[in-house]
Every structure is written in structure tokens, then in C-alpha cells.
Amino acid sequence: MSSHDAHGHDGGGHHVAPRNLLLGVLIILLIMTVLTVYTALYVDVGAVGNLIIALFIAIFKSALVVGFFMHLHWDNKFNAVALLYCLLAIGTFMLFTITDIGSRSKIEPVRNEIIPSTQVRDAINAWKEEHGEEAYEARMAVHDDDHHGDDHGDHEGDGHGDDDHAGDDHGNDEDH
């Protein structure tokens, strides 16, 4: 850590990230975000496949952020060691926990039995009691302009947004 003679343009002896590099990184990051959304919505390689693609893109993006925005590329290497050790700890945490939860059923099936929650049914029944059975049927009616919400595939943002909200406010008249 010697003293640098600073003359205005060396950032007091610390590395100054080039502007065009930062800008380039930002553009790549934005493109990657678009790519994440695109692959998730329009590329179907199975649930696991899509997850892996999304995670790879996320890891690539975070590597760019860490490396250039956070200056780790030019930084003291111990900072990188600290980060890697932390990631290792997280990996261990995740790996062993998943191994346990994921393999419990193989050896003793009873351990994997999950008592289903009754919360959702209670919520539905409470709504029916308040508004009536018919109102519920009407509320659940599927219309052509709606995407069907119960299968998962290549549709986007379905069943979401203000019409749901209106449905709650105005009772059962939303779709008439």
C-alpha cells in the first residue's frame, strides 16, 4: 500500500473503472434481463431446464455486478476469498438441507407425509358464507378473454391485476 502521487486523475491511487466498461456492463445486464424473461416465457425446456437457464443467467449477471460494478476484479484478493467462502457456506447449507428433505421419503415414506393446510379451504368457505354460493360460482367463471390460470405454460401475467381487485370491491358483479 504505497502512497501514490495523485494528480487529479487517478482517484487517489485507487483503480478507476472506465466509463465505457461500466456502460457496457449495464447494457449486457439489461439484455440479460430481457433474455431471462424471454426464455422463461417463450422457451420451454421443462421446468427444471428453465430454472437452470434462469439461474445461469442470474449467476452471470451477478458475476458482472460483483466483478465490475463492485470493483472486485481490481480489488484486494482477500475480499474475493471472503465472498467465495461465503458462497461455499451457502452451498453447503443448501446442499445438505435439500439432500435431507429430498430423500426423506425414500427410506421412511411416513416422514415425507405433509399434513395439508386447511387455510385455503377456510378462506373459500368464509367467502362463500359472506357472499353466497352463486356469487362464488360467478366469480370463478372463466371467460374467453381470461387466460386459464391452472395450467402453467407459455402465458404471461394471467388472471392478474385490477379486475381481481375490482371483483373484491364490487362483490359478484364484475363479470356481468
Binding site: 370463478m140 372463466v142 386459464h148 391452472d150 388472471g159
Partner: peptide
């Protein structure tokens, strides 16, 4: 407002053919 909140306070009854599953909360 719609009751799409976690766990024990979940009170969203579903809409547009969407019936919440047991694990939505």
C-alpha cells in the same frame, strides 16, 4: 387488499377459475 397474504392470514378465495392450492399461502 385482496387477502393474498401469507400463511394464517391468507383469505383470497380465488377468481376467474383459479382455485388456490393448499400451498399458495
Amino acid at each position: 387488499q385482496k387477502g393474498e397474504v401469507p400463511g394464517g392470514f391468507f383469505s383470497y378465495p380465488g377468481s376467474h377459475g383459479y382455485v388456490p392450492s393448499d400451498y399458495d399461502p
